[in-house]
Design a protein around this nucleic acid. Structure first.
Lengths: 111, 111
DNA sequence: CTACATACTGTGTGTCACACACTGTATGGC
DNA sequence: GCCATACAGTGTGTGACACACAGTATGTAG
């Protein structure tokens, strides 16, 4: 694929960046642990590496948007994440902004 | 507004990042210079600082997606930018990806 | 003829997030 | 005992955006 493909890849990543956070927040309205969260997002078409997801989860928790808890399930310790109250409010604001951007881009594209 | 507002701002910026590039490329299917490009994007709802736009334009030109040319118009030297052939191809690919992400997010949101 | 607005194009630096490569533990099947 | 896979991370590099700043040219108010 070469240089052109690389350029596309980097622009594509750039385009996806913010959407990952939004997808994670939205999917964590239901409690989930990392592994199944990643699978759920992949099923929706938002694939990401574990090494992208876990730092993101920790960051969001540090920022107070998520709460997490270690629990034992099926003989394994798993860390369950869920949206906090602040997280819900933030999700709503970000969804608004997402829709605004979406509309702007649609307008530009159609011209 | 304080810390919460700052957090929202940074997430919002993150969300907008890739879209700026896409908007610029799409708007440059017609030749424009920096100042009017910025105004056109602002009218569409995609506002950005000059100090964001100009580095972006240079980057895109370095990557071969834009071509630019200095011309005199109304007694001022202006730098006109336009999408290159490579840029058009890239724009199409990125629009595809944008639509894919958009669909993924819609799916997640609706659940 | 000076002062200021505004059209117009840039540069330098800091911050922050993602991807990539890597590490590590536990369980179950063979 | 061995390997796949479920599961959770860490460390580092790269690169983009925002912010603050710099600079030129033109028109216009006083």
């Amino acid at each position: 694929m070469g240089a052109d493909g690389d350029l596309y890849e980097s622009l594509r990543l750039e385009l996806r960046r913010g959407s990952l956070t939004l997808g994670v927040l939205a999917r964590l309205r239901e409690e989930r642990y990392g592994y199944t969260l990643r699978q759920a997002l992949a099923a929706d078409g938002l694939e990401m590496e574990e090494s992208t997801l876990y730092p993101l989860l920790r960051r969001l928790e540090t920022q107070g948007l998520l709460v997490s808890e270690w629990r034992e399930e099926e003989k394994r310790r798993k860390r369950f994440y869920k949206l906090s109250a602040d997280g819900e409010a933030m999700l709503l604001r970000l969804l608004d902004e997402w829709r605004r951007i979406s509309r702007s881009l649609e307008k530009i594209i159609e011209d």
